[in-house]
């Protein structure tokens, strides 16, 4: 199970990074989101993978699941959302002001569909 879990985080991280290295803003934002999923899963697993662990004190389940990574990841998810939102709006603003959605601010030809 551990191998499968780490493989999944690895694949997600790789895909996220690949997208983050693209030249247009939207894939980069998508890539960052994907990367943040991978990072959240990775961080979460630092407390171990508990199946059916107790969640609330007094639960009858197994040993209590590690609450610390959970608390950290919970805020990370919300902050990740704020970051995604900020970067995508920044991308829109850049396109509005620069007329391009290239991450380097290059003025490149817009795709054909836009010219209609």
């Amino acid at each position: 199970m551990e191998a499968l879990f780490s493989m999944t985080t690895g694949v997600l991280a790789a895909c996220g990074l690949f997208l983050a290295l693209r030249g247009r803003t939207f894939p980069v934002v998508v890539g960052l989101t994907l990367l943040s999923y991978a990072v959240n899963l990775f961080l979460f697993s630092m407390g171990g993978l508990d199946t059916g662990g107790a969640v609330v004190l007094g639960d009858k389940g197994g040993p209590h699941a590690d609450p610390l990574p959970q608390a950290l990841v919970l805020t990370a998810i919300v902050i990740g959302f704020a970051m995604t939102a900020f970067s995508v709006i920044l991308a829109m603003r850049a396109r509005g002001d620069l007329g391009s959605d290239h991450v380097n601010g290059n003025r490149v030809d817009e795709p054909r569909e836009e010219r209609s």
Binding site: E2, A3, F5, S6, M7, T9, G10, V11, L12, A13, A14, C15, L17, F18, L21, A38, F42, S45
Partner: peptide, 15 residues
Amino acid sequence: LLAAGFGGIVASLNF
């Protein structure tokens, strides 16, 4: 290749 290397490192670390 870069992404694959990165993913490999993340997976290895995690494992």
